[in-house]
């Protein structure tokens, strides 16, 4: 059985749930580890468990602010994610090889996205494109349809340029975490194959944590 990772989880102090509680549920569900990526906030206190990765999700309103924050956090935090959404920010994030993850590039409500040029940068720089499964759980009807169709579009480009992709829950509480098999089932809703989804939950996150593609820059070998 592959080792699964959920690389976008929000914990205390951003939310009222402790990282240890999230990890307990995630481990029970079959994850090997999680990464705490609070918005612009690094968990400073000693994390007892080696299965919790310290990360940060950078939220910026302008490209300049984004670059400043990336420079600030780079080297201090093992996992750098960028809060995606507006096209300009997405583009700036994938152009920067220091960024590990572009979280929900379609925006949390399916409004933005990456075009073919940005996707090529993502593949070259080893910036993982995140498919936020949490957005599918918390919406219904027309809104969910819009999110699904923008995810389908992204998936097409990800496949074409062989950019790394990951699946995350974007959980804010222990009730937002879904077991790996359930996440894979949700990923099939927007056209991801089972194999792709399994890799997006296990191999690729693991490679991100080991910075595999940052050293070698060989996305093709995936």
């Amino acid at each position: 059985m592959p080792t699964f990772f959920d690389l976008n989880v929000h914990a205390y102090p951003e939310t009222d749930v402790q990282a240890e509680d999230l990890l307990r549920v995630a481990r029970r569900y079959g994850f090997a580890g999680i990464a705490i990526t609070n918005h612009d906030l690094v968990v400073h206190e000693e994390l007892k468990s080696p299965f919790i990765v310290r990360g940060v999700e950078i939220r910026a309103h302008s490209v300049l602010e984004l670059k400043r924050k990336v420079t600030h956090y780079w080297g201090k935090v093992p996992l750098l994610a960028v809060h995606g959404g507006p096209d300009k920010l997405n583009r700036a994030a994938v152009e920067d090889a220091r960024v590990d993850i572009l979280a929900h590039p379609c925006g949390e409500r399916g409004e933005g996205g990456l075009n073919h040029v940005s996707m090529r940068y993502a593949a070259e720089n080893g910036v993982a494109i995140d498919f936020n499964v949490g957005a599918l759980i918390h919406t219904r009807g027309g809104e969910r349809a819009r999110i699904l169709s923008s995810m389908q579009e992204q998936l097409k480009l990800v496949r074409k340029y062989k950019a790394p992709m990951i699946l995350t829950s974007n959980a804010y509480s222990i009730y937002d975490i879904r077991a790996p098999r359930e996440m894979i089932a949700l990923a099939t809703l927007f056209g991801m194959s089972k194999d792709e989804a399994t890799r997006a939950l296990s191999e690729i996150p693991r490679g991100l944590l080991e910075k595999r593609w940052k050293r070698e820059r060989e996305v093709e070998r995936l």
Partner: peptide, 23 residues
């Protein structure tokens, strides 16, 4: 089975109590 799995995963609250379901 996969369809049921996805439907179960999409349930986030029941009568205003947050829940999560797994197979």
């Amino acid at each position: 089975v996969e369809e049921v799995r996805a439907s179960l995963a999409c349930i986030h609250s029941i009568t205003d109590a947050r829940v999560s379901i797994r197979v």
